[in-house]
Design a protein around this nucleic acid. Structure first.
Lengths: 335, 335
DNA sequence: CTGAAAGCGCTAACAT
DNA sequence: ATGTTAGCGCTTTCAG
């Protein structure tokens, strides 16, 4: 089963390749209606599909955007990918999604691979471990947009949640309810991932503004095991027990919920809980969990549009501002 | 910022393009060490990245596999994508993921697009709406593998859950607990999506084998609204009330859980619940939900390996068997 | 309105 | 051990 090429269509229709090319690219202006029809039929009969690889080579553009996500098992991520895909499709771009798994080496390998594949631009949830590479991309004036996390200096347009506000929303909700012994639970901040650091910063600021002091013991970060152990030991000391928990991401929320369940600590009677990254299950669970949600769709749409704009006019500014999005509190039953 | 090509490297190293090509493709056999080093340096200094588009055009293969998923917001889907990506990467293939959104037209557009991009093969979660297209792919002997759903006749290797067994596991667990008024909840079966149909079939068989009769009112399918309404009206009639619910996918589970919550129907005191598609949240909720889980990783690995095998030796058989995977019951607190 | 021809960046015989 | 050459399938001037 030989591949059908443009030449086959041209031969069958009795015209030259270039005329077929015109047809494929919807430039019928000066084409005789009869010619057009003959080409149409030939394509139909042969089942011809144009070869984008050849087209891309010639045009030096692929109409595809590489998307490198930090963790694609996260619903936050998939929701954003989905709107990015929609927005790109509307503008005749395709996206090539890669999962860096929060691993800088994988990220680097994917960036190189996507460049080799000649993508027209890159949307990245940066791992924070490839500053040098980002600089090179900037020097090459390659279109890049960051989302969710920022890398200093801000070489590329960056779209992020207002993480300070996020923590403020949670803390003030707890205070309103009269719970001031507030514990924050999150994943490791060792690799310097901005949202985590900013949310902790925002938590401290919010406590301060409300005249509460920061208890370092009430800032728990780590992997599943680490979080669990710290939760355990924190709970030993009855004096030190918090009466409210703010989980700053889905994984931390899970560990927290599991811990509370195991120890038969009741929500909201014993402790209040607010988590981030809404999931339908959080609304369906008992009690339904109050969350701070982020405007995923808008962030995805804006990111994609910025990317498309950059591809159209790849003149990068020296430095960029970070675009911030306001979080919202979705009140349910856990506070 | 001009793109660096192989010619630039060749000039700089004082060799010909073909020698550079040899180097790039790790064929150093007959290459003088000095030459190798000069090329190495030239590449380094120039920051040369090979152009895969040109390579693909020449070699008539792209080392990329297209993956068309039915719904990428589903955790079942993302988990499988992840292992497919890993398996492909280990074999030096890349994957291009597209989200058909359970829409046959989108699926068709993506198939055409991916063919145009010259992918070497296609892994598809089929929407069931493109039988003709599948036949054409078969006729062209194009490597395709189906996952999750089957299309009759089985033109391509197909990897699926043993859906009969799935329902049997749930039904028998309910019976063991003494709950025989078992209601099944699922999404619409109008478009003929196999897992849904098979799970309903399996449910009926399991009831029959256990001497229970099938009550059509206890088979609820539809979209969120539809499920909700049917649940409402079913619950009106106290005589007809089931005492066990089997939700055959994540979305149905959500609707069910929400309904039970709203009506303060307690799990497991009032009704038993088993759902499908495990999610960490199901383990953390109160009560923790018993689920029937599928071996996602194994299915993904086998699917990817089959695809890679097919690409290596694209001789499709006339017809294929369906590879079935056994589900497992994860007992928690909801039965 | 249509055709001829050059070339995108790379690979793979085939020479040397 | 390295260079020469002929395309891969398409687009795009430029002629006619």
């Amino acid at each position: 089963m030989k591949k059908i090429t443009m030449k086959d269509v041209a031969d069958k229709a009795g015209v030259s390749k270039s005329t077929v090319s015109q047809y494929i690219n919807n430039r019928y202006e000066y084409m005789a209606p009869a010619t057009k029809e003959r080409i149409e039929n030939a394509i139909e009969e042969l089942g011809y599909v144009p070869n984008y690889v050849a087209k891309s080579l010639k045009q030096k553009k692929t109409a595809t955007i590489g998307v490198i996500v930090a963790n694609m098992l996260h619903s936050f991520t998939t929701e954003i990918i989905r709107v990015i895909e929609d927005t790109c499709n509307q503008n005749d771009f395709h996206i090539f999604v890669c999962n860096a798994d929060d691993n800088p080496e994988k990220e680097q390998a994917y960036i190189t691979m996507l460049m080799a594949k000649q993508v027209d631009g890159l949307i990245i949830f940066p791992t924070m471990g490839n500053r040098e590479l980002y600089k090179q991309l900037k020097k090459a004036q390659f279109p890049v947009v960051f989302i969710d996390r920022k890398v200093e200096p801000v070489l590329f347009p960056t779209f992020m949640l207002d993480n300070d506000k996020t923590s403020e929303l949670a803390v003030e909700r707890f205070i309103k309810r009269g719970r001031t012994k507030i514990c924050l639970v999150g994943q490791s901040i060792e690799s310097g991932i901005t949202p985590r650091i900013e949310r902790i910063g925002g938590y401290k600021k919010a406590l301060f503004h409300n005249g509460l002091h920061v208890n370092e013991k009430w800032i728990i970060t780590g992997d599943s095991d680490g979080i669990n152990q710290q939760l355990q030991s924190l709970w030993q000391d009855e004096e030190a027990r918090p009466n409210a928990f703010f989980a700053i991401n889905g994984m931390a929320a899970l560990n927290l919920l599991l811990f509370l369940k195991e120890h038969s600590i009741h929500i909201p009677e014993d402790v209040s809980v607010i988590t981030m990254d809404d999931s339908p299950f959080l609304a369906a669970s008992s009690p339904a969990i109050t969350v701070v949600a982020q405007p995923n769709s808008q962030m995805g749409i804006d990111t994609a549009n910025m990317m498309i704009g950059l591809i159209g006019n790849p003149e990068l500014k020296k430095e960029y501002q970070v675009f911030r999005y306001p979080p919202t509190l979705i009140e349910r039953e856990s506070v």
